[in-house]
Design a protein around this nucleic acid. Structure first.
Length: 564
RNA sequence: CGGGGUGUAGCUCAGCCUGGCUAGAGCACCUGCUUUGGGAGCAGGGGGCCGUAGGUUCAAAUCCUAUCACCCCGACCA
């Protein structure tokens, strides 16, 4: 491919709205252009990268027993109403009406569509299992799209869905997909980690995320330094420590005035305490009425864990009005002493004595409070894990915090959709059974972005070879007839051998060509210049290390093949 | 949705506070000459409804109002 014929609009400066490195580099190196918030055009170079990732995904999915199909992007509301997600999915689901005023949506994911297909076509136990996937453009109307391809509204995703006879078979399929994912991301040349994850709006009970490790990652993940345990912070458990029975201390507490001090840091600073000596009391509105959750001042409560401990269907932080009603004080001064609603405490509090809490009175806190001073409904793990916490799976391990970019997720769904949509089959006894499902996603564009986050330097992108837009870039350094002729021949010969080559044939100065090449990030350069031609050689240069090798003209293709 | 900010050339930005001549710079682009192994030099040139609509004024990029778009922080969520 000739550079001069391609559309590669490189930029010396990045547009000011780009924040993360992958976004800046994709813009500067001429890979993407923005059309609207969170909506991007993939230029030829980007498309080549996406196609490479897709090809790897296709191969591994197929090897693992899945088949490719293509579902519609537009779906009728009825389908989504069947699973109730028309109401629950929220504003991220882009909805519209057709000319007959019928409701439709643009697919953010395709559980409904695939389940509809399978329930209508698969009837017998003999036809199961089925594992189907597609690679398609999706749309999620994100509140705040950002970071270029990392968090766009329109994005390309591989989504796969499996249907099995029973739970055991479904979990085997899940395992197979898990393994396929590990191969896919390894083949893409990425450093990643599979972590236990929550299931969000997709639902289900077992899930892993595939996180590409990068400092700029949006997700916090915790991994044990001793064993294999790793989880998203949303889900990470904390080792349950053996607690002595709750201390019997009580009645020592005193009220102290804390005018206008609400936030933990403010109160701590004012009373000359550390945040670890405070206990936060958060009031929640739930399906079972108001409840209180208590964690140490420097910790954060995790609603999902609280839901689990208290056996709730839903909960969210109470608003100012409700707090005032329950605690008889403005928010910021809530405390457990004298509260009449159920109180759930984090296990960490079992180790605390003489702590400080809100006094349920404006501008006042209690100090020297102990667990004997109030009613406790239940104790457990209800806070977010942080680095240094004990690993829940082994005795000695400590959790370490990492940042990651989620590029894939696998879910075991069970019967959530198949039951709601009546996807059943007849077993050998002629009895109807509900299918067991799993779903498996990979963000194709996000994988490309994550690869850049993980592989770049000050000059530009450093593509891992398997997903680079081209394998080698031939650079002619001058317009001398000899140089041009040689470069053209090399480029043509390599292409003939099936090597993907970008030939920079532009009438540009050497500096410009090198700078653009560095930006674009193709792993190998073949530099053809008049200096080298004097002794019949060209240079093979590695983008990543800058290492240069002199290659005799006759050996170009063998040398390159060895390098690849 | 709450808070903050920005819209001036393809990109980065100045000018706005304190209204006034033909609206500027760097990069990019076009032409010519020179140059040619890491973003060249000189000369010439093209390109702007100053986001949009309305208002104030003799006069608006500049002041006022509305509106749209975009960005940041937060809440939300994959």
């Amino acid at each position: 491919m000739r550079y001069s014929q391609m559309l590669i609009p490189t930029l010396r400066e990045a547009p000011s709205d780009a924040e993360v490195i992958s976004h800046k580099l994709m813009l500067r190196a001429g890979y993407i252009r923005k059309l609207a918030a969170g909506v991007y055009t993939y230029l030829p170079l980007a498309l080549r990268v996406l196609r490479k990732i897709e090809a790897i995904v296709r191969e591994e999915m197929t090897h693992a027993g899945a088949q490719e199909l293509l579902l519609p992007i537009v779906m009728p509301a009825e389908l989504w109403k069947e699973t109730l997600r028309w109401d629950y999915y929220g504003k991220e689901l882009l909805r519209f009406k057709d000319r007959h005023e019928r409701d439709f949506c643009i697919g953010p994911t395709h559980e409904e569509a695939i389940t509809d297909l399978v329930r209508n076509t698969v009837k017998s136990w003999r036809e199961l299992p089925k594992n189907l996937f597609q690679i398609q453009t999706k749309f999620r109307d994100e509140i705040r799209p950002r970071f270029g391809l990392m968090r766009g509204r329109e994005f390309i995703m591989k989504d796969g869905y499996s249907f099995d006879r029973d739970e055991k078979a479904a979990k085997e399929t899940y395992q197979k997909m898990h393994e396929a994912y590990e191969k896919i991301f390894s083949r893409c040349g990425l450093k990643f980690r599979a972590v236990e994850a929550g299931t969000g709006t997709i639902g289900g009970s077992l899930s892993h995320e595939f996180q590409v490790l990068a400092a700029s990652g949006e997700d916090a993940i915790l991994a044990c330094d001793r064993c294999k345990y790793a989880a998203n912070v949303e889900k990470a458990e904390i080792r349950c420590t053996q607690h002595a029975a709750r201390g019997t201390k009580k009645g020592m507490f005193k009220k102290t005035m804390t005018p206008g001090k609400k936030a933990v840091e403010e109160v701590a600073a004012f009373l000359k305490l550390t945040p670890t000596q405070l206990v936060k009391t958060l009031i929640f509105e739930t399906d079972k009425g108001a409840i209180a959750g208590l964690v140490r001042g420097d910790h954060n409560i995790k609603e999902d864990k609280l839901k689990m401990l208290a056996g709730l269907d839903w909960c969210h932080l109470a608003d100012e009005k409700m707090v005032a009603q329950v605690s008889k004080a403005p928010s910021g001064f809530s405390g457990p002493v004298g509260l009449s609603i159920p109180v759930f405490i984090d296990q960490e509090l079992m180790r605390m004595e003489n702590f400080c809490v809100g006094a349920n009175e404006k501008d006042a806190h209690f100090i020297d409070v102990n667990l004997g001073d109030f009613q406790i409904s239940k104790m457990g793990d209800i806070r977010a894990a942080i680095g240094g916490d004990g690993c829940p799976r082994c005795d000695k391990g400590r959790l370490q915090e990492h940042r990651g970019i989620e590029v894939g997720q696998v879910f075991y769904l069970g019967k959530k959709y198949s039951e709601a949509m009546k996807a059943t089959y007849l077993d050998p006894n002629g009895k109807g059974q509900i299918m067991e499902m799993g779903c498996y996603g990979i963000g194709i564009g996000r994988t490309a972005a994550a690869a850049i986050e993980q592989n770049h330097d000050e000059k530009g992108i450093l593509w891992p070879l398997p997903i680079a837009p081209f394998q080698v870039e031939v650079i002619s350094l001058s317009q001398d007839a000899d140089v041009v002729k040689t470069a053209e021949k090399i480029a043509a010969d390599l292409a003939k051998e099936g090597i993907e080559v970008l030939y920079d044939d532009r009438d540009e100065r050497a500096g410009v060509k090198f700078a653009d090449a560095d930006l674009i990030g193709i792993p190998f350069y073949l530099v053809v210049g008049s200096k080298g031609l004097k002794d019949n050689s060209v240079e093979l240069k590695l983008r990543k290390t800058g290492e240069v090798q002199k290659i005799p003209l006759g050996d170009v293709s063998t040398a390159l093949k060895r390098a690849l």
